[in-house]
């Protein structure tokens, strides 16, 4: 029987684990893409690379930028308008033929969670730069993949940039409500709308994730229909579109002041 020359795949488990311990995040992400054996090995052993605390997603009409630890590492998934995805990381690009950039990103992100685990300090998401129709399609793919996972994402702080509260609902549902303590939302106004719009968050308030929340920061003018819904918050910063004497009484009742 022919013995293959020694390579990364023929190295025993103990030294291979040591090798991955000395690899940085970029190397681990690249090794996962080499072949299924290395991918399975990394996902099973979960190398002790420095724990990633912050993730960021900027979703554009034709690209997704995935940032790790405040741009320590950035991955870019771009639609080349010819049915291919151009993936870039660390000034290196690769064309993935006949692929959808939503799907490539979603699969990569799930793979990232496989070895990194689901726990993070902060996840920033800007969903305001994609058209509503495309965003709906993207969220279907992205959230569907995350729903298949055993564990929900455990994140403490979620800053969001949105066009509408509806866009955040599916995302919020894949987050572990016991971990999510703070939400910050900035509603992006279209530049053509000169007048400042007021926004609703009533559907967010119905979610389990809202009920366990401790801090809320809203940078836009918000319509609050029932101020009792703010009662459980330890800290809340917001501008309301309208408030009545009755609302103020309610706020006093729920010990907000």
């Amino acid at each position: 029987m022919e013995i293959p020359p020694p390579n990364l795949l023929t190295i025993a488990e103990v030294p291979m684990t040591r090798i991955t311990e000395f690899c940085d995040l970029k190397s681990i992400l690249n090794l996962r893409k080499v072949c299924h054996d290395l991918r399975n090995f990394i996902d099973d052993t979960k190398p002790k690379i420095s724990k990633i605390k912050v993730l960021g997603f900027e979703i554009f009409e034709d690209r997704i930028i995935f940032e790790i630890d405040d741009r320590t590492l950035t991955m870019d998934y771009k639609d080349d308008k010819k049915g291919n995805t151009v993936f870039s990381m660390d000034q290196k690009s690769k064309i993935l033929e006949n692929s959808n950039f939503f799907e490539i990103f979603s699969n990569d992100f799930c793979g990232f969670l496989d070895f990194q685990g689901p726990k993070f300090e902060r996840i920033y998401m800007d969903l305001s730069k994609m058209s509503p129709n495309s965003l709906k399609k993207f969220l279907e793919v992205f959230v569907e993949n995350l729903k298949k996972r055993k564990e929900k994402i455990k994140v403490k702080f979620l800053p969001l940039v949105l066009l509408d509260q509806e866009d955040s609902l599916e995302i919020l549902k894949v987050l572990d409500s016991k971990f999510l303590k703070k939400i910050q939302i900035y509603f992006e106004n279209f530049p053509e709308n000169r007048e400042e719009k007021s926004w609703k968050i009533d559907k967010i308030m119905e979610l389990e994730q809202w009920k366990n929340l401790e801090k809320l920061v809203l940078h836009s003018k918000i319509e609050i229909s029932d101020f009792r819904n703010l009662g459980h918050l330890r800290k809340c910063v917001l501008r309301v579109a309208k408030i009545t004497v009755e609302d103020l009484k309610i706020l006093k009742e729920v010990s907000f002041f």
Partner: peptide, 8 residues
Amino acid sequence: VAMMVKGK
């Protein structure tokens, strides 16, 4: 070995 993988 980890150094040989780095940047590839």
